[in-house]
Design a protein around this nucleic acid. Structure first.
Lengths: 339, 339
DNA sequence: GCAATTTTTGCAAGCGCTTGTAAAACAGTT
DNA sequence: AACTGTTTTACAAGCGCTTGCAAAAATTGC
């Protein structure tokens, strides 16, 4: 609102002795501008310290050079890391990032999506969105470029970046089985998220493959937060015959489990083993260091950006789906069960 | 760019049977609109699913409803936490957040500032900026609303949110002295940052107050990163008579110190004590849990936003400076020195 | 060296909105 | 019922930029 007198293309047109449309042309696309003219314009804009007004540019039909990033929350380092990856990759382009956090008011995702399509950004990156909302359809109908990160839509109609959630969970469980555990608890994630569903499925598959019974009682809802993970673990630990190992669907809930185990005066990994999922930075810092399934968080951000940039360059780009590999990271939180 | 046909105020004007400026007036400011008219307009805009076009609005002189947040990097949880606080508080208002990361290209801060003043955002929140750059002056000259978070400018001419860095560092050092340490190493932060300077100053003051000599050799440059903290600690630990305690100017570098200590096969806190600064979430999760000085990271974000919102509401607001209190958090990384 | 091209430039219109100003509608007075 | 004084609405202009179209300049071929 203040910003007294920034130079406009008119100013630099006058300075360079050309018309404003010539200025516009040299500055944005470079169609048919004589080299000498271009230089004059560039010099003038340099001299006056010209900075294009994005609002005007985008209003007039140009790009806003903004990519919207929609995240559920900022309180989870898993999200933060992905954003970090996005930001890294975006910095290489000349797009900027506009961040929307949806956790508080729900239903806000749809509003945001509307605002974004209304020119606020050129494209949208959705990080772990709740897919139940119908705004995806709107985006798709309008042919607005977007990519899903860590959440595929059931209908398979969106370009998305995912990881091998099921396989990862399978490996985590298998790791525990291999160590000799037979009573393996599972702290489930938010059932609205595909990743949570797949991890659960991986857990069950491993159990089945090794002829271990699946017990409903060994499953508790952690909702991907450490608070709920703590509560869920309490529930498991208070059973008459508690599990000898726990696989938490994400690191954050694993930290809650850690806390609960400690309160029960049990030692890790001697008394009980624990595996997480995500490998957020803290996982390597807690004591004992957490064995977990690594998701390439940064890379997920990178790939998402690359995809969106491609879509922007080629609006007719066909649907794409990238699945990144997860990896078992063995650290100090697992051991064979007590004899 | 796609987004076929979003309804505009013209559409809703037609629908409501009033002129477009009436629509504009009821939708933004509410000056003198008859109640019945307002209702008609609101109903129409509801019906058509109208979403204002921010670009146009701001171009025409209205606010963009965007707050720019300029951060040096996203790889430090200390920054992330502040952003989190900012975001929380912003969500309550109806501003959105546009994020600029400056780490990669340097000198980018100035470019960003220019773009922002050029209408990209209504105000600017600068988190721990390097104050050497001259763009602050530009902002001030143009009377553009901004607030500094965790970095006061020397000239005391900016509204800012700070913490008691000096006092915190003093207390950290004092804590160590009280435990009986006499050789206390210091891992310094980035000397361009005021916080680093003040923490150094607090360290020296405590030494002086308790008649401990200040030794240049006990000071190593950690630059606020864990990698550099590690290297700095190596340097200290390899001295003929190494310190019995180390005060790291931030938690991140303290983590590096932790690593280095471990490699030297020393135990914490038995062989050597360690204090950090910031109290990022990891501090409570590492082993041993880190004794540190807490900065109210979230709150810093909150206060910053509150200030900026006030400035936006009252452009003539006088300069303001808020200093939040730090707090010594005693955990498990300190003990008296060996006999 | 001139017409026919082709490249380059300039003008006008318009993106969706705000806002100053003028006109219209309404009230309250005599 | 005419006249003020208000409240409410409509019109026009313009924010800074892009872009289609037409005019101007440069280039080519003969």
């Amino acid at each position: 609102m203040p910003g007294n007198k920034m130079p406009t293309i008119y100013d630099i047109a006058k300075e360079a002795g050309v018309s404003y449309s010539t200025v516009s042309r040299t500055l944005s696309g470079f169609e048919f501008v004589k080299e000498s003219t271009r230089e004059k314009v560039l010099a003038a804009s340099q001299k006056l310290g010209y900075v294009p007004n994005q609002q005007a540019r985008s209003l007039a039909g140009g790009p806003s050079n903004l990519i919207g990033v929609l995240v559920p929350t900022l309180s989870n380092e898993y999200i933060t890391q992905i954003i970090h990856g996005i930001d890294d990759e975006l910095t290489k382009s000349n797009y900027n990032l506009i961040l929307y956090t949806t956790n508080r008011h729900q239903g806000k995702e749809a509003t945001y999506a509307a605002a974004i399509m209304n020119g606020a950004a050129d494209a949208l990156l959705l990080v772990a969105p709740l897919i139940t909302d119908p705004y995806l359809d709107v985006l798709r109908e309008q042919n607005f470029p977007y990519v899903l990160i860590d959440q595929a839509d059931q209908s398979d109609q969106s370009t998305a970046v995912n990881t091998t959630n099921r396989k990862g969970a399978y490996e985590a469980t298998h790791h525990l089985i291999r160590l000799g555990h037979r009573r393996i608890g599972f702290i489930a994630g938010l059932p609205q998220l595909n990743s949570a569903i797949e991890r659960f499925s991986g857990y069950k598959a491993a159990l089945a493959d090794y002829d271990l019974p699946f017990c409903e009682e060994y499953v508790a809802l952690g909702k991907f937060t450490s608070g709920n993970g703590y509560a869920a673990a309490q529930q498991l630990l208070d059973m008459p015959t508690p599990p000898t190992a726990i696989f938490a669907a994400n690191d954050l809930s694993a930290f809650g489990v850690l806390e609960a185990i400690r309160e029960h005066r049990l030692r890790i990994p001697e008394d009980i083993s624990l595996v997480g999922f995500d490998d957020i930075p803290q996982a390597a810092m807690v004591y004992p260091k957490l064995t977990t399934i690594r998701q390439p968080l940064h890379q997920m951000g990178h790939e998402g950006v690359k995809l969106i940039l491609e879509m922007l360059a080629d609006p007719a780009m066909e649907l794409r789906r990238i699945t990144l590999d997860t990896q078992l990271i063995v650290r100090d939180s697992c051991a064979p069960p007590r004899a």
